[in-house]
């Protein structure tokens, strides 16, 4: 089977699913930023008391927040988050995820179980790693600062 067929048939569980950062809606924007920095992850999934997603706070929203000087970092995130989490189930296909990410311009997609509780996070990074695994021969061996072309020709 080729990559296209794999993407059409395989479920999201085949992607690398990262542990999601989950916080309640009363958590502050500062707490969200601290957690994102600590976990090296650009998204916090905001969940209700049952662990079901009610929103998302991302690096992009943090940028907008910083530009707008009228709010304090200590205000609750519920006033600044995306109200829709756009979560998907592990059993949904990767093709469906790709289409959802493209049409809704998503970077992060929370993954939920059958009860709707957050069990992880995937998105652009998971998809890129999945595709890259199909092309191990292409892994770059070029050193970081090496040049592809020489400045001067070698030899006589």
């Amino acid at each position: 089977m080729g990559l296209r067929q794999d993407i059409i048939l395989q479920p999201i569980s085949e992607l690398s699913i990262r542990e999601a950062i989950t916080l309640g809606p009363e958590a502050t924007v500062r707490e969200c930023a601290d957690q994102m920095r600590r976990h090296k992850l650009g998204c916090v999934v905001v969940v209700d008391s049952e662990g079901k997603p009610v929103g998302k706070f991302t690096e992009r929203l943090l940028m907008k927040f910083l530009v707008d000087h009228s709010h304090s970092l200590d205000e609750p995130v519920k006033g600044f988050m995306y109200q829709e989490s756009n979560s998907m189930k592990e059993s949904d296909t990767i093709a469906r995820l790709l289409a959802r990410m493209r049409t809704k311009m998503l970077r992060f997609v929370p993954v939920v179980d059958d009860a709707g509780k957050v069990i992880g996070l995937t998105g652009q990074k998971g998809l890129i790693e999945y595709i890259a695994e199909h092309f191990p021969r292409q892994v770059k061996t070029r050193e970081l600062k090496s040049k592809l072309f020489m400045d001067q020709r070698e030899g006589a």
């Binding site: 890259a132 892994v139 770059k140």
Partner: peptide
């Protein structure tokens, strides 16, 4: 480089972690 392939770019993103 502009002569590289999309798979090259994807692998750099996946292995080096740059978006």
């Amino acid at each position: 480089y502009e002569t590289d392939t999309p798979a090259d770019a994807l692998n750099i993103m996946a292995t080096a972690g740059f978006r």
